[in-house]
Design a binder for these strands. Structure first.
Lengths: 159, 159
DNA sequence: TTTCTTGCAAACGATTTGCACTTTG
DNA sequence: CAAAGTGCAAATCGTTTGCAAGAAA
């Protein structure tokens, strides 16, 4: 896989992917990818839909779902299903990161962990070729911990 | 959290959980937990439903969903959403394990990794208290790798 | 010109909900 | 006997699908 260092790299890789799959290079597909790249981190189908509308580029939900699926296959986008939250996507960046998910408020924080990355890069599994991986860490963020301690409250929303 | 070494430990912990939450100890709830414990590893709501029927203990879907949710809250059951597969559950065992998911055939394999567990046990995150974690590794299992190589085939089902 | 892609609306499937009935505490 | 839990069927919601119309190649 080539390096996804910048916007053009993603677009080029998508272009190559479509070539390889003998699929058509429609304006919708590239417009969606361009919008995806504008998100600093996670987004949902809904927020992507809104973003497209704001950019005055109307696409149907069907096309959005189709294209996101393609982008996931092309390894340009990752799909995340966190406990109790709606499906989230993010562009597959050059730097892998883990996700800390607060089971009380649902907030997702990204953390870079060089040790862990090094470990995973070296890690081989028998009879299995790793493509990518996701580490989800569930727990309580400090804000919620404080809130729950102070007023012995129940969580915002139990996940 | 107490140790979940055997069947009784789970039941006792659920009992305590219901006490703490001031919730009722209905036969349905314990019947469902007992069935859950009979699965050697992953199961779905559907397979659990079937298992209940086979055990001649009829419960409604609503109750099944409710109770599974309780068991997840009680940390007796983990919920997994693997790419492209239906939601799976498993009892929260004493030994954590990672999941290798083949993106071609959808097979899920569990692997125990002492180094990784030790690492995670020691790992502290700033402003976050870890409760549990899941490592999902996506890739290609050897069977699919062989199949794809031999006849340059497309994957069974692209996830 | 042929096949792929799109948009729309209808269909789908897993999960949730409303409500009358039942059971626990 | 009051409150909580259950079963059932209908509702919901995110996602998929079928099909006619439009656009790449």
């Amino acid at each position: 896989m080539s390096e996804l260092t910048n916007r053009e790299a993603y677009i080029k890789q998508f272009d190559l992917f479509l070539d390889k799959k003998k699929m058509r290079k429609t304006p919708e597909r590239f417009a969606i990818l361009r919008r995806v790249l504008m998100f600093p981190s996670h987004f949902t189908i809904e927020s992507l839909m809104e973003s497209m509308e704001q950019g005055s580029f109307h696409v149907s939900r069907a096309t959005l779902y189709n294209t996101i699926q393609l982008l996931v296959e092309a390894q340009l986008v990752r799909r995340h299903v966190f406990e109790g939250l709606q499906v989230q996507y993010e562009k597959a960046g050059a730097t892998p990161h883990s996700h800390l998910i607060c089971t009380s408020c649902g907030k997702v924080k990204e953390v870079r962990d060089a040790n862990f990355i090094a470990y995973m890069n070296a890690r081989k599994f028998t009879a299995f070729t790793t493509n990518f991986y996701s580490l989800y860490v569930y727990g309580t963020c400090s804000t919620c911990a404080r809130r729950m301690k102070k007023r012995k409250a129940t969580p915002n929303k139990e996940v």
